[in-house]
């Protein structure tokens, strides 16, 4: 138990002082237990927010969404790991695989903390929204995910730089951006595969939906009609 409290202190110290995070990632004395703690912590924080998402449809769906949300981030990490590792060797700080895993876990944990801080906010809105407010809730969650991503990207960039500096290497500017793009690309598709998150009241609840389409396509289909209308309106201005 005491070691877990130590881990929490170490972890929070790394997030609040990203310049010290390099030591945390590279320190060989901190064992695999810390990585396990990170995975558990990330899962718990995301599960908290996931609960608030599914609560719209009741307690069962809340539990399902709470279980699914940690997998969204951890599976995305697993899919991206080989690409991250190779990029890190070519352009970044040349971490070994275990160091790379810990760095990415610390990075994801900062996002988990940012998202979990919105959990009370999300619980409040979910409990006070009527059954017709499905679209409002979905948009609210998208906004919260975007906000938490923005909040954590800055910290993540600092942690990456600190780790590279600890190794005496200069991190090429594009690396973090490329990682973020790849992570977002895979992550959005993963969220599409694992949907529903909120669950509308228009039909019976199902924990998963059949695979079909992709996030990018559905986003395009959402935006495309709007875009067309804007284009058709344009001549009116001139």
């Amino acid at each position: 138990m005491r070691i877990w409290i130590e881990y929490v202190a170490l972890w929070w110290d790394a997030l609040v002082h990203p310049d010290r995070a390099g030591r945390l990632v590279l320190d060989k004395r901190i064992g695999r237990g810390f990585d396990r703690f990170l995975v558990a912590g990330i899962a718990a924080l995301y599960a908290l927010y996931g609960l608030s998402m599914g609560l719209f449809r009741g307690y069962g769906p809340a539990a399902v969404s709470g279980l699914k949300l940690p997998f969204l981030y951890l599976l995305t990490l697993a899919v991206c790991l080989p690409a991250f590792y190779v990029l890190n060797c070519l352009w970044g700080s040349r971490l070994s695989v275990p160091e790379c895993v810990r760095l990415l876990l610390v990075a994801v944990s900062s996002n988990a903390a940012a998202l979990a801080s919105y959990a009370p906010f999300s619980f409040f809105f979910t409990l006070t929204t009527s059954r017709g407010g499905y679209r409002f809730l979905v948009l609210m969650h998208v906004a919260v995910f975007a906000l938490s991503a923005i909040a954590s990207v800055g910290v993540i960039a600092l942690i990456f730089r600190a780790t590279a500096a600890q190794l005496g290497r200069h991190l090429r500017a594009g690396v973090v951006v490329q990682w973020a793009i790849l992570y977002a690309f895979v992550g959005t598709q993963m969220s599409w595969v694992l949907r529903p998150w909120v669950g509308s009241w228009s039909g019976p609840y199902a924990p998963f939906r059949p695979i079909g389409g992709s996030f990018i396509e559905s986003l395009y289909n959402l935006i495309h009609p709007l875009f067309d209308r804007v284009i058709r309106l344009l001549p009116g201005f001139f």
Binding site: C80, P82, V193, I211, G212, S214
Partner: peptide, 26 residues
């Protein structure tokens, strides 16, 4: 060889998208 290694590192990403998408063109 670098190109091929980067390609191979993207294999999991391609695998995941093939598994979760039904569109040939995508």
């Amino acid at each position: 060889a670098i190109t091929a290694t980067v390609l191979a590192s993207m294999a999991t990403v391609a695998f995941f998208f093939a598994l979760t998408s039904r569109s040939y063109h995508f």
